[in-house]
Design a protein around this nucleic acid. Structure first.
Lengths: 216, 216
DNA sequence: TCTTGACGAGACTGACGGTCTCGTTAAAGT
DNA sequence: ACTTTAACGAGACCGTCAGTCTCGTCAAGA
């Protein structure tokens, strides 16, 4: 999401003296260069506010002030507030670990579910994620990226279930999409509403509910 | 949601003879009465805008103008924009029908789930509900109201499950809160993301997934 | 040294939620 | 009829916030 403007100078080098501004699009870069430290400061500040904001909305001015930066500098490099927050989170947030493949569907599923629940409870991502979802409600750009993100998560879990079904641990006609959505549906529902816990016990019981009570 | 201002004149001053409202808080109403037609006009306008807005935010001024009403009239009877929108939707949208009690948990659950899915798909409520949730993301007041609403829905479903468990159709140690959240979690997840259908087949399969495949 | 463009600062615009005031009007008691 | 009370429509007004504009300054190249 860097969103650099294209100022690459593919000039034919007749620039200054010759024809001059004949072709408008290409011109060599002159003047002061972008300060990378400023970009870092902005991203740092945005991430910090995102983490510290307990659901409270984040203003552009707050980000700019925390970064010691003028608002215009922010809008010079990012198209909107949402783009900055997104960039801050994706640029430094946790990478997706590959899902487990132990040979036991129940173990794999329990692991994925528990890891998902844990991650959301673990500071400092929970408030940041909650705030991000909130912002996404009024920012189509953010909404789209979040949609892509959740789709990727579903695909990952779908793979785990698919392997289990191939092993015969699930009936061939079981609706895997439904199972996946039962997991993430419950997760987001409880995460955003906060009316019930997302702890280990819940993960355990959810796994049992989806696969049937363990025979062991 | 009445929100009458408390301007009780708790004067002892035997103002109205013979009325006998000795208690301080009660004072006979005088002056012009609330115009019910105005309330209807506001609710109608709000609902119409809600239905027609494809995700676009709704302004208070738009509601007031569409209803031919001053903004203050709106704020005289509702505490916030969100309250009006929610009232508009709940007042005329699906009445909370009491949950079924046929004596069969499977039938009852299937009915509730299918009805929930159907209601959300039935035009024109889907866009209205989506807009409402969007507004809730930036309106703490509305968020609270929505939380209350979803809580009530959960309680209703919980009752159904409780009756079934009392009949022995569910193991005594089954986590009913989890079951409820699996239903509404899946519902909201698919409803808001829109990546998978909420049709009869999904309702059927969800019911089976929660109770185990039907023996019939 | 001169030009260019990034930078910090902050004034400004336009929307919007919500409040306040004003003149008008309907319902009740006297 | 007269008075009191409060709801009504209209719209000015306030605070907040995303995004733009302007200005004086500063760094990098020519």
């Amino acid at each position: 999401m860097g969103e650099d403007r294209a100022m690459e100078a593919n000039d034919a080098e007749d620039s200054a003296p010759g024809t001059g501004p004949g072709d408008a699009t290409a011109r060599p870069h002159t003047g002061r260069r972008r300060n990378e430290a400023v970009r870092q400061a902005i991203l740092d500040a945005a991430l910090r506010l995102l983490v510290e904001s307990e659901g409270a909305p984040i203003t552009v001015e707050a980000v700019a002030r925390a970064a010691g930066v003028g608002k215009q500098t922010l809008y010079r490099w990012w198209p909107s507030k949402g783009a900055v927050l997104l960039d801050a989170l994706t640029d430094r947030a946790g990478q997706d670990v590959p899902p487990p493949d132990t040979g036991s569907l129940r173990d794999d599923l329990r692991t994925v579910v528990a890891a998902t629940f844990d991650a959301a409870r673990r500071a400092p991502w929970a408030p940041a994620l909650r705030t991000l979802v909130r912002e996404a409600a009024t920012d189509p750009h953010l909404a789209e990226l979040l949609r892509t993100y959740t789709g990727a998560r579903r695909a990952l879990l779908h793979e785990v279930l698919d392997r289990g079904r191939a092993r015969g641990e699930l009936p061939a006609d079981r609706d895997l999409d439904l199972l996946v959505d039962q997991v993430y549906g419950l997760f987001w529902y409880r995460f955003l509403l906060g009316h019930a816990p997302l702890d280990r016990a819940a993960a355990e019981r959810l796994t049992d509910s989806l696969l049937g009570p363990g025979t062991a």
